[in-house]
C-alpha cells in the first residue's frame, strides 16, 4: 500500500533527474555547436571563469549563451502553456494558441514591423496584443452567459480567426519587401537575434509562472474534471481556472513576443509526456517544462547547423513534431474510436 506511493515518487524523481541532466548536457553542447565551433574545454573555461580565446568568449557571451538560455525559457514556456490549456480544457488536442494568444501576439509583432519599429518594441507590441486578444476572447464568451468551456473555446476560435485575418492584412499592407520578409521570418520563429535583455525579461515570467503552476499542479487535475466536479471536490473552479488561463496566456505571449510564433511544442511535448507517465499533472507539468526546454535547445541547434543559412524554428518543430504527434495518435488510436 505504502509501496505504491514510494514507487510513484521514486519513478517521478528519477525522470526529473534524467531530464534535468539531459537539459544541462544539451545546454553545454549548444554552446559548442554552430557555424563557429567552440571546443568543449573552452566552454568549461568560460563557465569556470578561466581565460579562453577572445573570439570564443565573444561568441558565447553575445550569441550562444543568450539564444540557448532563451531557447530553454521559450521551450519551457510553450510546453507548460500547452499542458495547462490541454488540462484545464480537458482536451489533449488543444495548443497554446487556443484562445488566440499566438495569433494576437503575431498581429502585434507584424504591426510593430509595419510601423518600422524593431527589437524590444516588437516584443512589447506582440506581448500586449497577445494579452488583449485573450481578454477579448473572454469578453466575447461572457456575452453568452453560459458556464460551458465550449463557449470559451469557440470564442477563442472566432477571435483567433479574426487575428489571422489581421496578420494577412499586415502582410498585404507591407509593400516594402524588407518588411514583408521580416514579418514572414518572424512568424516562423527565430532566436538568432536573442539578447540577454530578452532573457532577463522572460526569466521572471517563466520562473514565477512555473513555480505557481507546480504549486497548483494537483488542482489542475481537479479543474480538468469541470466546474461541477471541482466544486464538489473542494476547488474554486472559477478562481483556479482564471489563474491557470492567465499563467498559460502569460507564458505563450511572453514566448511568442521574444521568439516569434513557434508551433508544435505546446501540442506535442505534453502529449508525448502523457504517453510515458499518464495524465496526472503533478508529473506532466514539471516533466513538460524540462522536456520543452531540452527539445527547444535541440531545435535551435538544428536551426543553426543544418543549412548554410539559419532555418526558421517552426520549420524544424514541424518536421520533428509531426511524426511525434502521429506516433502519439497511433498509440492512442483505440481511444479515438
Amino acid at each position: 500500500m505504502q509501496n505504491d506511493y514510494k514507487k510513484i515518487k521514486t519513478r517521478f524523481i528519477t525522470s526529473i533527474i534524467i531530464l534535468s541532466v539531459l537539459t544541462v548536457v544539451l545546454f553545454f553542447v549548444s554552446m559548442c555547436v554552430g557555424r563557429f565551433e567552440i571546443p568543449f574545454e573552452d566552454v568549461v573555461k568560460y563557465f569556470t571563469g578561466q581565460t579562453l580565446p577572445e573570439i570564443s568568449e565573444r561568441v558565447i557571451t553575445y550569441l550562444r549563451l543568450p539564444r540557448t538560455l532563451l531557447a530553454v525559457l521559450v521551450g519551457c514556456a510553450l510546453a507548460t502553456s500547452g499542458a495547462l490549456y490541454q488540462s484545464v480544457f480537458n482536451n489533449k488536442l488543444v495548443s497554446p494558441d487556443l484562445l488566440g494568444v499566438s495569433s494576437g501576439a503575431s498581429v502585434g509583432a507584424c504591426f510593430a514591423i509595419l510601423l518600422g519599429l524593431s527589437g524590444a518594441l516588437i516584443s512589447v507590441f506582440s506581448f500586449a496584443l497577445g494579452f488583449i486578444t485573450v481578454i477579448l476572447t473572454v469578453v466575447v464568451a461572457k456575452i453568452f452567459k453560459n458556464k460551458s468551456n465550449v463557449v470559451l473555446l469557440l470564442s477563442g476560435i472566432a477571435i483567433g480567426g479574426l487575428m489571422s485575418s489581421g496578420i494577412g492584412l499586415m502582410k498585404y499592407l507591407a509593400d516594402d519587401e524588407m518588411k514583408l520578409a521580416e514579418m514572414t521570418y518572424w512568424l516562423l520563429g527565430d532566436l538568432s537575434g536573442a539578447t540577454m535583455k530578452e532573457v532577463f525579461v522572460m526569466l521572471p515570467i517563466v520562473v514565477i509562472s512555473c513555480v505557481v503552476t507546480i504549486l497548483m499542479s494537483w488542482r489542475v487535475n481537479i479543474v480538468s474534471l469541470g466546474a461541477k466536479e471541482s466544486k464538489t471536490l473542494g476547488v474554486n473552479y472559477k478562481a483556479n481556472m482564471g489563474i491557470l488561463i492567465a499563467i498559460a496566456t502569460l507564458l505563450t505571449a511572453g514566448a511568442v513576443s521574444v521568439s516569434g510564433s513557434i508551433g508544435w511544442i505546446g501540442l506535442v511535448i505534453p502529449n508525448v509526456i502523457r504517453l510515458i507517465v499518464g495524465s496526472d499533472n503533478k508529473k506532466v507539468l514539471p516533466l513538460s517544462m524540462l522536456s520543452g526546454a531540452a527539445f527547444m535547445i535541440i531545435v535551435d541547434m538544428l536551426a543553426r547547423t543544418l543549412a548554410p543559412n539559419e532555418i526558421p524554428l517552426s520549420v524544424i518543430t514541424g518536421i520533428i513534431g509531426t511524426p511525434l504527434f502521429i506516433y502519439a495518435i497511433f498509440k492512442r488510436r483505440k481511444d479515438l474510436q
Binding site: 489533449k92 487535475n221 466536479e229
Partner: peptide
C-alpha cells in the same frame, strides 16, 4: 457527489 456523467478525456488511473 457522484455525478450521472462526467466526461474525462485525460487518462487518469483509477487510483489517481
Amino acid at each position: 457527489y457522484i455525478s450521472q456523467n462526467t466526461t474525462i478525456n485525460l487518462d487518469y488511473t483509477v487510483l489517481e
